[in-house]
Design a protein around this nucleic acid. Structure first.
Length: 494
DNA sequence: CACTCACTTATTATCACCTA
DNA sequence: TAGGTGATAATAAGTGAGTG
């Protein structure tokens, strides 16, 4: 699955409970601070708290405000029971201004962290100063999850109302929405509220979860993306749903945030790459999602799983709807990725690059057709023609350092089901669909070198080092095989 | 201690332009 | 011609810090 979706779904499935609870806690803290009138007892409590801080050298709760560290007055007032102005006047003394710069600290909320990534808490604590931003990201994550998993247009997602996805007695839950686009009444007049969609969307579980999360953020019976409800922490009285421009901005912010979190938790691989199309627009957002799924290393893996899943889950219910859904975009992006892979292969072959492997000849044959359609894929029909053409089924798989020239009858990745796409995360090294170019061999050599270096560094335990050396040897063996068996188009014209 | 200031932030509104 | 896109202006409100 694309990194963007991984993080959106983590947010919706695993972190939502913590964030919603922490938000309620932070509101309570704030309310307490605001309603407290200064008294001598509250001042004593504040002095005791500050005295402890000073005596133990603990850090002072601060947050980033206007580009510098600022004392979190409201937070301190909330946890000590003092009034905000008492905190304000006390901490204005130069002692504390110095202390603030010397020992700036976070504003941890008491909320327990239940969400996990690989069994580890996803964060140490939730911060009073950051929780509003997290609520914002949570709403965005729900939007991303819904957009992708249902294929709805952004306008349709934003028009959903609380209660639009009732728990079904049996079968899959359905999402009932409003259709804004060209919604007209019987006289042909434009209906601004849109009309109830007669064919509902099928909600696979994570989409239904996203709606449940949103229902806890939105007013009862109101819009799920009510602009005022989603304006944290101010809740300014905006009418209607979040606007398109705002959602665009939020998605960009979400990407930045998730990438930072991925890097911070040693998951740099899951950082979300920059979209070459530039900023992510809302309508183009679906295209971007398709791009992420189809193009990323491992993206085709996700495509095979996720898309295959969606096909079976969704298309039976409303096949006619899939015409204007995200399926077309996925088809187009997948076909473009395939065309790119073929065009690159074609150029490489022309430059004398060698190919090896049981599927080498089929790869060369496919590449010969590449220039005919490279860059010309615009419609979903063209895309599907390419994807259906068995002679063009070439999938680059950088994870396994190979190309899969897919032929269902020869595939080892799934012998039991009969799908039209390979399962790239289950590549089998003896598969008859494998082809390798000199580039793959070079990557293997580089990877083997990296593994050997790691094994020799002394930083890993001996048994692990042995395993690393074993893998490196296997890689070098593959390179050796490649150089013995490689063929080029110059010697073997097709 | 109350008030005001300056700064920041997130949002909507509106315009001109593109495109199928 | 409708609808989408991108840039920019306008708006409103919270916040810590400064002032009397």
């Amino acid at each position: 699955m694309g990194p963007l979706l991984i993080w959106a779904l983590r947010m919706v499935d695993d972190f939502a409970e913590d964030i919603l609870t922490a938000w309620a806690d932070s509101r309570q803290l704030r309310e307490r601070a605001e309603q407290t009138c200064g008294s001598s007892e509250s001042k004593a409590a504040l002095d005791a708290y500050l005295g402890d801080l000073l005596a133990c050298g603990l850090r002072l709760p601060t947050f980033s405000h206007a580009g510098q560290r600022a004392v979190a007055n409201t937070y301190i007032a909330g946890i000590t029971g003092a009034s905000v102005s008492q905190v304000n006047s006390r901490l204005r003394r130069t002692t504390w201004l110095d202390y603030k710069l010397q020992f700036p600290g976070p504003c941890p909320l008491p909320t327990p962290i239940r969400g996990r990534i690989d069994g580890q808490p996803w964060t140490e604590h939730l911060d009073y100063a950051e929780i509003a931003g997290l609520m914002r990201h949570l709403g965005t994550a729900c939007f991303i999850a819904l957009s992708f998993l249902t294929g709805m247009r952004p306008g349709e997602v934003l028009g959903l109302r609380s209660g639009c996805c009732p728990d079904p007695d049996e079968g899959r839950p359905l999402i009932h929405g409003h259709v804004f686009k060209s919604a007209r009444d019987e006289d042909g007049n434009h209906v601004s509220q849109g009309q109830m969609r007669e064919v509902p969307w099928v909600a696979i579980p994570p989409a239904a979860t996203a709606i449940r999360v949103l229902e806890r953020m939105a007013p009862d019976g109101g819009l799920l993306f009510d602009a005022a409800a989603h304006d944290f922490p101010l809740h300014r009285p905006y009418p209607g749903s979040l606007s398109r421009a705002t959602v665009t901005k939020r998605v960009e912010d979400f990407i930045t945030w998730a990438s930072a979190l991925a890097t911070a938790s040693n998951r740099a691989r899951e950082a979300i790459p920059a979209d070459p199309h530039g900023a992510v627009g809302t309508e183009r957002f679906r295209r971007t999602l398709a791009w992420h799924i189809a193009r990323r290393p491992g993206g085709l893996v996700a495509l095979a799983i996720q898309y295959g899943h969606m096909r079976t889950a969704v298309s039976s219910g409303y096949a006619s709807r899939s015409r204007d859904g995200i399926h077309d975009l996925l088809d187009v992006e997948t076909a473009r990725a395939t065309a790119d892979a073929l065009a690159t292969l074609h150029e490489d072959l022309a430059a004398g690059t060698g190919v090896s492997g049981p599927a080498a000849r089929r790869a060369i044959h496919a590449a010969a057709h590449a220039p005919a359609f490279a860059g010309s894929i615009r419609t979903a029909r063209q895309a599907r023609d390419i994807l259906r053409n068995p002679t063009l089924a070439v999938h680059d798989n950088p994870h396994a350092f190979l190309m899969c020239v897919y032929n269902r009858d020869k595939a080892l990745c799934h012998r039991l089901d009969t799908r039209d796409t390979p399962t790239l995360n289950r590549c089998v090294s003896t598969c008859a669909n494998i082809a390798r170019t000199d580039h793959h061999a070079a990557q293997l050599t580089a990877q083997a070198g990296a593994l050997e270096e790691q094994a020799a560094s002394g930083l890993v335990p001996v048994p692990l080092a042995d395993r690393l050396r074993g893998r490196a040897a296997a890689f070098r063996d593959l390179v050796h095989q490649h150089h013995n068996a490689r063929i080029t188009t110059q010697e073997n014209p097709v």
